[in-house]
């Protein structure tokens, strides 16, 4: 490892952590340009290497679904909690379109139903002592607010959940108007899913970690069978696990985040920019340009060959061009395979 700064004499020699703290940018560059063909980052990974996620589900008692995700030193707890929104509490004049809207049809209306009624309530808490920059007692920082807005918009734009899973319907046994025909199905309420993401520890890439945690927790979620009880005149649930239902998710969108490290050019040799997969906190501190790509390869039968790009987010600089972006999408596809294996419990 190069611990001397590439400067004219007097040559300074620092221990690693001090070099990293005093001059982070040359520190990372020294690492990346140390070996000619195989550049290693300060954390020992190669530029293209992601951290392998560790996922544990169902560990929280009071949640319908929960997951603990570890991405290196980043660890996240996500709890999904379902509560009932009664039809009389539904704000505004929302009309249930009836059974004709179809259970299977992927109509555009569902989006407005979920988003308009706020049936998904995701929230993120960073100030749990997980990082020195987020101290509790203050309002959520802009970083936390941006993070949660990105997660919410990804939840809605990928249309991950089916609105039909969340509806609580009721069909009366007798039709008061016409006893011969069957009664119409009425909407009695909705399940509202509270997605609470708590960071235990942050070491970079909070977005990917929380998204994997949300996905894992949603896959783990078990909604009890809810029905309208005429005698009770309210919605009751059955506590039998056999009647409970898992959420069906549309596809499996997985996000991959990259950070672009712009090296300072000293002479005309070698590459000066590196695109680092899955940056840690130290690398996030020295990189300005970040790219997040969400891909989903579950639609087709051909595995990772058949992909849909669900979202591309890029900000902070101008290094990543069209060709680089193509390469990053390929790297995201590889990442999709890795993460989906862990999610399925195969790895």
């Amino acid at each position: 490892m190069a611990t001397t700064a590439p400067q004219p004499p007097p040559a300074l020699t620092f221990p690693r952590p001090i070099f990293a703290a005093v001059s982070p940018h040359p520190f990372l560059q020294a690492h990346l340009s140390a070996a000619k063909n195989k550049s290693l980052r300060a954390n020992g990974r190669t530029a293209r290497e992601f951290r392998v996620p560790g996922i544990n589900t169902g560990s929280l008692t009071y949640c319908n679904g929960s997951a603990v995700v570890r991405l290196g030193n980043t660890s996240v707890v996500c709890g999904v909690r379902a509560e009932i929104l009664k039809d009389e509490d539904i704000p505004g004049t929302y009309e249930y379109p009836g059974q004709t809207a179809g259970e299977d049809s992927d109509d555009e209306d569902e989006g407005s139903e979920m988003e308009g009624l706020r049936l998904l309530v995701p929230n993120v808490e960073l100030s749990t002592g997980s990082t020195p920059s987020h101290i509790p007692g203050n309002a959520p920082t802009t970083y936390a607010q941006t993070l949660i807005t990105r997660i919410r918009s990804l939840l809605h734009s990928t249309r991950l959940l089916h609105a039909s899973d969340l509806r609580i319907l009721y069909r009366s046994s007798t039709n008061p108007e016409d006893p011969d025909t069957e009664a119409e199905t009425q909407l009695k309420g909705y399940w509202v899913l509270y997605l609470d993401v708590f960071f235990v520890s942050i070491d970079g890439n909070a977005f990917d970690a929380s998204w994997i945690a949300i996905l894992a927790a949603l896959r783990d979620t078990l909604l009890p069978r809810a029905y309208f009880d005429e005698e009770y005149e309210g919605i009751l649930c059955s506590d039998d696990p056999k009647e409970a239902q898992r959420l069906s998710l549309r596809g499996l969108p997985i996000s991959s985040t990259f950070a672009v490290f712009e090296g300072r050019k000293e002479d005309d040799e070698g590459e000066a920019d590196w695109v680092l997969s899955d940056p840690d906190a130290f690398e996030e501190g020295v990189c300005r340009e970040t790219v997040s790509i969400v891909v989903d390869c579950e639609g087709g039968k051909k595995g990772t060959k058949d992909l849909v790009v669900r979202r591309v987010e890029k900000s902070g600089g101008g290094v990543v061009g069209r060709e680089t972006m193509g390469g990053l999408v390929k790297r995201s596809i590889d990442r999709w395979g890795e993460v989906s294996k862990v999610l399925e419990g195969k790895a």
């Binding site: 509560e83 009932i84 929104l85 009664k86 009389e88 509490d89 539904i90 704000p91 009624l117 706020r118 049936l119 309530v121 995701p122 929230n123 309002a139 959520p140 936390a144 607010q145 949660i148 919410r152 509202v192 509270y194």
Partner: peptide, 10 residues
């Protein structure tokens, strides 16, 4: 600054 539940409450 956070995402809130539906206004009617759950």
């Amino acid at each position: 600054r956070r995402n809130n539940a539906p206004n009617g409450g759950t």
